[in-house]
Amino acid sequence: MKVAVCVKQALEVSRYLEFTADGTRVDPAFVTTMVNEADLSAVEEALALVESAGDGEVVLFSAGEDGADEALRVALALGPQRAVRVWADGLALDDARTVGAALAQAIAAEAPDLVLCGVQSADTGQQSTGPVIAAAWGVPWVPVAHGLSLSGSTLTLHRDFEAGVTETVEVHLPAVVTIQVGANVPRYGTFKDKMRAKKADIPVVEPVGLPAPRMVVTRLTAAPGGSGRSLEMIKGGPADVAARIIALVREAN
């Protein structure tokens, strides 16, 4: 069987940050990158499915500029056979619809049995790429899933809702599934896989005929304290922290 997995190079920004001159990007000096956590769980799920199927391959996809190759190489080191980068000059990565449609084009050309994505990216978190790929590719999808098992062309899996509710569902392949954060513990690749990932040739597929983005980021502003709360750091050592906690508990209880 052939499983496609989408991975994203997610950004982490420092607490103090500055923006690029046009105000639509965080200055790269204040950014670190990492492969999106849920995407690595998607890779692990794909590798496990192919192993239990007995044969097949896992092909990685990422939409982005050269930097996306880094994410693809990190994910390749877990064991997938190949990776493809999807990019065209000016591809609107902020618009989930554009990203989903671009990935769907490249994925459809590979005709996989199953497409896995992480449930959401840790940096911009729209939970949208997987469902857009499914709609663009024209197949059913199951979001926020874990515990996948395959019997013939029927996939059985668990999907999570709010308040701890979990539903078991089945769907016929081909399909798109988004993998829940923490669905599994991604493996460490073998030394051989790591060496292969370093040297792997990563072809670029250029999407064609995409519509103009329907959503654009026009301006970024710093939001000190995600919630607008003002943070007071507790002075002193663990004993002072503990004393403060107890005082607050007595006040609130």
Binding site: V26, A212, V216, L220
Partner: peptide
């Protein structure tokens, strides 16, 4: 407005086409 990067950044977004949002 979207709150992104662990709430450290607010992104103002607009919709340049006449499609419904």
């Amino acid at each position: 407005i979207r709150s992104i990067y662990a709430g450290r950044v607010h992104a103002e977004v607009t919709f340049p086409t006449d499609r419904p949002v």
